[in-house]
Design a protein around this nucleic acid. Structure first.
Lengths: 228, 228
DNA sequence: ATGACAGAAGTGGTCTGACCACTTGCCCGG
DNA sequence: CCGGGCAAGTGGTCAGACCACTTCTGTCAT
């Protein structure tokens, strides 16, 4: 979450707010100072302060009531999983997403297959655009998980994929991702899609595992190049 | 989330934004109109529009790049982890943890097996204590995941198990968990442990699936009793 | 023809100051 | 004591201005 990408400005203020909550030992339901006071305290304008407050409200850390004030939230949303190495991420994905692809094939949902098709056709057009390819890659994997009909599995897939998007991981990945590898990935995606559409659980499982282990193999090559 | 509480104003605009994304068939990575244009289109001021954008960015639905524009996000964040039903949780666990048990058997780590043994012997002593049984149940599942040698898989297992601990889930579960069911669970855990220790990937996978589907079956019985 | 650099245009980020809508607390009257 | 009205405080929103960053285009040099 750190590194290449500058922190979103509202995040900086949001963290200051959280520090204030912690420093003052505020518990869920406790009231924070007013917006005007907080803005003055942190040396920012009120609209900027509000942006941070809204981010924290979306995360469930705060609750904002018009005319009343800002309160510490009762239920912080689940925090981010961080600190795992790229290899762990790829291995975990191979294990979990293979099982998910198998379940998606068992269920064989035409809507999910149609969604995969839409993404695949966009991927075919985007092989020269790394950022777009990456976005669509993530979307494809989530579409597969959606094919299980289980929202939690889709959420989990999105969560692991997010680790894939970390700046560190992305920087390394940039060494091996290019039109060639995206075309390989596209073909591998196609095989996954086909196995799911055919309801072939074993093939779906194996196609996903193949895709993610190939991805890992490509990544290992990139890592060796990076170390040199 | 709805009903009692009036909708947050930025939510109203955020939904308009999501409608625009859907109506225009925008895919992850696609660019939205500029803030000034969106604010004019929706008839609101730019700061108000920004509040909605930030909410959507926090949820991973959008990505905002300074100087560049607003893009559809690749990975909607697990916005509603709490929205999953107990059935979804159990199904997701069956799918994911079966794959994890298989991997643990492939790896066949004596340390992990020893940890499972310690937990199982404590479970045998704790069948009359529901809270303790539950803690040890969770610990066993995490120990299996640790047997993969992959920290991320262990974290994920802990995260899903946490859903298992939600107040709603626990209240329902209280109907079917007792010394009898904990003894059944213990036996099922033993089968998982044995398969992993024997390095039998198929048996480990099947034992975990059996355990979690039995758990689901027991839970369904409890749900029927709760509905009556 | 290609690549590099500079400038313009467009984009998001932030501020100030004003006003509006809502909530809460206090005071007064019945 | 209870209810209503008002004032003060709070969040919600706006307009307009300016700043920082990104992208695109045009020009020049090789």
């Amino acid at each position: 979450m750190q590194g290449d990408k500058p922190r979103r400005p509202y995040r900086v203020i949001a963290d200051q707010i959280l520090d204030l909550v912690a420093d003052n030992g505020l518990a869920p339901g406790d009231r924070l100072p007013a917006e005007r006071d907080l803005a003055e305290r942190f040396g920012v304008s009120r609209p900027s302060l509000r942006e941070a407050l809204i981010a924290l409200e979306v995360e469930g850390r705060l609750e904002i009531r018009m005319g009343s004030g800002i309160y510490v939230g009762a239920c912080p949303r689940a925090g981010a999983i961080e600190g795992e190495s790229p290899f762990e991420v790829l291995q975990a994905r191979a294990i979990v997403e293979s099982a998910i692809a198998e379940e998606a094939a068992r269920r064989c949902d035409p809507k999910a297959v149609a969604a995969m098709d839409r993404i695949l056709s966009r991927m075919a057009e985007a092989t020269g655009d790394p950022a777009r390819s990456l976005d669509l890659d993530g979307a494809f994997h989530i579409a597969v998980a959606m094919g299980t009909g289980n929202g939690l599995l889709a959420d989990m897939t999105a969560d692991i994929y997010r680790l894939r998007l970390s700046p560190f991981f992305s920087r390394l990945a940039a060494h091996f991702e290019g039109p060639g590898t995206w075309r390989l990935a596209l073909a591998e995606h196609g095989a996954i899609r086909d196995a799911i559409a055919a309801g072939d659980t074993g093939a779906a499982r194996e196609a996903m595992r193949h895709h993610l282990t190939e991805s890992q193999r490509r990544f290992c090559g990139a890592f060796a190049a990076d170390a040199a």
